[in-house]
């Protein structure tokens, strides 16, 4: 059964009098455990599609179904609840809350979920251990490198056992070595925990790592191939 289904999604943005067709009748389905990349040139609609799948934005037409939940039937509060419990996010930048330490950032989602303090700390520390940041648990984001910050973001995305993790250009601000290290960690998570990862990217390394590549052009799927 697919964990993500995108059915006939259209999205038009208006910039003054100009209508920009960001997504045009997108149909897409991803199974649980996928490790997929949505690629394409700038302005092709990959971030918009990722936002749709994450419930951060809603389509003008069509529907998105994640973990069996139809977004068209949900209000903002229900979407927020779904994001909290079933979707993890890794953004390109500004991923972490600057006033919280690494472990507190990882704990934060569990705090919103109402997990007990002791359990939060145990799970967050275990997750930091998995991404190799045990030593840095008490450091604030400003004291971490870009790669370390992204690893904390991955730990936070995974810690609440989501159905999918959406990563919007996660390696864009990293050098290739650090980017590869991050991808390896996410690939391990995908394998070990069977968490679905969907990336938006134009980084060739991410495309190489992905088991499936969806190419977008002008808001439409240009190619969709599995490796």
């Amino acid at each position: 059964m697919p964990i993500v289904e995108v059915k006939g999604v259209d999205k038009v943005y208006h910039q003054g009098d100009t209508a920009v067709h960001a997504l045009d009748n997108i149909h897409l389905s991803m199974d649980a455990g996928s490790f997929a990349a949505i690629a394409g040139p700038s302005g092709s609609g990959k971030t918009t599609l990722l936002n749709m799948i994450g419930g951060l934005d809603l389509p003008d037409h069509g529907d998105v179904i994640v973990d069996g939940r139809h977004f068209s039937e949900m209000n903002q509060s229900q979407l927020a609840q779904l994001r909290l419990n079933r979707i993890g996010f890794v953004f390109q930048a500004y991923n972490l809350i600057p006033v919280l330490s690494a472990v507190e950032n990882v704990e934060y989602v569990m705090l919103l979920q109402g997990v007990e303090k002791a359990e939060r700390r145990d799970r967050a520390m275990a997750m930091l251990d998995e991404v190799g940041l045990t030593e840095k648990y008490d450091n604030r984001p400003a004291e971490l490198s870009g790669g370390q910050q992204q690893r904390v973001a991955v730990a936070r995305a995974i810690v609440s056992n989501p159905a999918i993790v959406l990563a919007d250009e996660p390696t864009a601000n990293l050098d290739s070595k650090t980017g590869e290290g991050l991808l390896r960690i996410m690939a391990e998570m995908n394998e070990r925990r069977n968490v679905t990862f969907i990336f938006s990217t134009h980084d060739k390394m991410v495309m190489d790592y992905a088991h499936r590549l969806v190419l977008l052009r002008d808001g439409m799927i240009d190619d969709d191939r599995s490796k």
Binding site: G54, Q76, A80, L82, R83, L84, N85, F91, L112
Partner: peptide, 16 residues
């Protein structure tokens, strides 16, 4: 603002 956006993306409700 970006931070508030991040918090909302993570599932934080407006009331919080």
């Amino acid at each position: 603002m970006r931070e508030f956006g991040l918090l909302k993306a993570l599932g934080m409700k407006p009331a919080l």
